[in-house]
Design a protein around this nucleic acid. Structure first.
Lengths: 202, 202
DNA sequence: AACGAAATGCAACTACTTGTTGCATTTCAT
DNA sequence: ATGAAATGCAACAAGTAGTTGCATTTCGTT
């Protein structure tokens, strides 16, 4: 259940050794294509080109390994500048959401959130990471809201989940192609739905 | 890989024996709380109060068992009458979606869709079932569309996925409470987004 | 009610996967 | 160059998955 290797690494602790990072990456990659239940420490070892004893020595259990890999995810990213319009900002947001959705990190985080059963702790951590990421995304909308383009009382979290949920369902679950035209159509609908000015057909 | 028990049951074939149905149900229930990867034939046997040899004899592999359980899902349900307005019909649709989302069947279908890796066949079947269900749901919107309340050229599939995606993310992934007020707010946004008449704050 | 075929339960077993340990070899800060 | 820490390797122990033979039960048929 340890979140970090048992022994303090003697190398410079500043950045995790590249081997360690390779292992975390391999773990997440495995988790992006397979269940947590189906994930085996050996498969991670194989992918990371490392002996399985190495893994077992540093992380006593599968859960500990995944835990550490999770903690290694840094979810900071740069925020784009505001485009100056609600429509533009929401589209920027949608594109960013889509990009994130397809990442290895997001895929494995999803698997862990769905987990919840044998390792609730992992589900909790995954949830926290995703919440943080979502909060960052939400800031992309702030500018438009501050500009007063959005109808008062609008539930912004809901708008985010409408957009993000659609992207998630189409991309991850239905494995449909999600292109920019689709994102634009979705944003069109939502903008007409929440903007102050009466909706007009585009 | 057999979808049905190896031997023809000698009993009346009309309806599957109740034991068989109990086994399928146990399989889906297990699948609703655990990975496909973590799913074990023994756990299904335990839940169904049946000896594991019985399962192994009738379905040679775990995949075959799950396959059969999947096929046993009947996804017909009654369609509510139209409420006479786009808003009302969409709300009815949303409520129905939410109800379905929480069902054992939907939970296990989701797990199988996410699978795709060791058993693409299962993912394919799960996809087909969900598509059929979605098509049924879409019919709830037909009335409103026929009435001409919806803007021409509106991508109805997209609207469905906006709504359904949000419900899925909130309910299944984030495990947030989804109440009727939330559904109403979502429908409000979407209706203003797609209806012909200029949107008005409610 | 009685018979017999099919299905099930039970227990023992094999095969495979997972996790552990001892020892030789490599890595790396000093 | 040296030694402590980390790794690889191979052999092992433990646990889980799947199989088999046989006794018992179930249930349609007569």
């Amino acid at each position: 259940m340890a979140a970090t290797p048992r022994q303090q690494p003697r190398h410079s602790q500043k950045r995790p050794a590249r081997r360690e990072r390779a292992i975390y990456r391999a773990t997440l990659e495995e988790l992006a294509v397979a269940d947590y239940g189906a994930l085996s420490v050996e498969s991670v070892a194989l992918r990371a080109r490392v002996n399985k004893t190495t893994l077992y020595r540093r992380w006593p259990t599968k859960a500990a390994l995944v835990h550490a890999a999770l903690e290694s995810i840094v979810d900071a990213f740069e925020l784009e500048a505001s485009t100056g319009s609600l429509h533009g900002d929401l589209l920027t947001l949608a594109r960013r959401m889509f990009k994130i959705t397809r990442s290895v990190e997001a895929q494995s985080l999803l698997r862990l959130r769905l987990l919840d059963e044998p390792e609730p702790e992992l589900a909790r951590i995954a949830a926290k990471l995703q919440a943080r990421r979502q909060a960052q995304l939400a800031r992309l909308l702030e500018a438009a809201v501050d500009r007063g383009e959005v109808r008062r009382g609008t539930d912004l979290g809901l708008v985010l989940d409408l957009l993000g949920g659609m992207i998630h369902v189409r991309s991850t679950i239905k494995k449909m192609r999600v292109d920019d035209a689709l994102l634009k159509r979705a944003v069109d609908i939502l903008v007409s739905g929440i903007s102050l000015r009466p909706a007009r057909a585009r």
